[in-house]
Design a protein around this nucleic acid. Sequence first.
DNA 1: TAACCTACCAAACACTTGTTAGGGAACCGA
DNA 2: TCGGTTCCCTAACAAGTGTTTGGTAGGTTA
Lengths: 231, 231
Amino acid sequence: MIPGGRSTGDDGTAPGRPGPGQDQNGHVATTKKKTQVSASPERRRELLGTAAEVFAAHGYNATTVRRIADEAGMLAGSLYYHFDSKESILDEILSAFLDELWAGYDAVLAAGFGPRETIEALVTESFREIDRHRAAVAIYQKESRHLSAQPRFRYLADSQQKFEKAWLGTLERGVASGAFRDDLDVRLTYRFVRDTVWVAASWYRPGGRHSPEEIARQYLSMVLDGIAVRD
Amino acid sequence: MIPGGRSTGDDGTAPGRPGPGQDQNGHVATTKKKTQVSASPERRRELLGTAAEVFAAHGYNATTVRRIADEAGMLAGSLYYHFDSKESILDEILSAFLDELWAGYDAVLAAGFGPRETIEALVTESFREIDRHRAAVAIYQKESRHLSAQPRFRYLADSQQKFEKAWLGTLERGVASGAFRDDLDVRLTYRFVRDTVWVAASWYRPGGRHSPEEIARQYLSMVLDGIAVRD
DNA sequence: TAACCTACCAAACACTTGTTAGGGAACCGA
DNA sequence: TCGGTTCCCTAACAAGTGTTTGGTAGGTTA
């Protein structure tokens, strides 16, 4: 996950650039390479956005640096003025997404809701996150599995663990309190709910017929009450 | 493993090779390249199996031909005795899976079940397919989106369309007959059911605690009746 | 005007990629 | 024994890969 939920970071406020050796991720940069810190973070975000789109559409490995540069209207080498590697572009995309995700999740988890309300809030928050970081979520889904093995992306595995703890814990609380059925395998239920929510990123398109909240409402209705008619 | 590893050799029965120009998919081989038809289809299947595993684990693009060959105990060039390209390996994996999938689906759809029973049968059949073709399903999920744009893999798009027709039709039938709720967006429900089932391939491991049938039972219970306790 | 910084280009580098061509060992039926 | 087939190896190829180096137009500051 991401360390202390650095959450907001430094958007807008003091232009104080992060000290050397400090990454937006908090994982210390043991690397000797001086990270190229662009003076205009806007251009950076712009490039990250187009890179994320291309990554999401064609997959990380199938995406060439030249393709990203092309989409951004520049040449491949020029990208290295802003980033020091293709991998660090991916890194920034994913960690920015996870930072924001956990900011939202932590707020929900700290609110002291009951199990059912917590699940509802988590699902809703998730769809909002999909709405905002569609590309990043798609990338995460495709690549996180084999990325998390890599030391640089260990925070993906950490995040997933924290994720499981939050959801599984809530579900177990719900079973104990009588809100959720006790005749189901909780781990299976967890994966069921988790997948149902996040796979939506593969077909969701912002600005579509349904708002994130509306989708969340219907998804919750299905997950909680089922699609069959009650007799 | 290593060279001599011819291992089992050919404990095969009839070496009857399929007629030329005929693909297991039915899509005519318009290609001019003479497809290398190995005399022992078992070795072929063996190689397809290991290739599928590597593809599933690391993604198609991230997988090098040398890696596949290595895993199979031979050198990269040797693969081209059995297949004429990396792409056609992928092609065979996917189409073999889809062939078997549709054999099962068509049987279910032709059985004349009611909507609810049809859904139950389709879900169960799907988990059986995941059990048998775990790797192929994982590959399909990761790559089908951008592959279906390619002419060679058009059958992926065709399959998906047929897929949607079958599931969506059954759901609509169920709503009309009063078996399923009518206050939900049917398309959303379709994607919901479809995704929940197939994403399971990403975590499912054959030989685990639950049999495909048991997983199907629990999934169906959740999808149909929900995870909340009824009052 | 001079010095400097930002954001890019142009051209190359080293390496990996999928693929091919030729050869050879083991086994087969005749 | 011989020719043929099967299955793999050796060695290379061309194209594409991420990345680096040096340069430079344009703006800002002094």
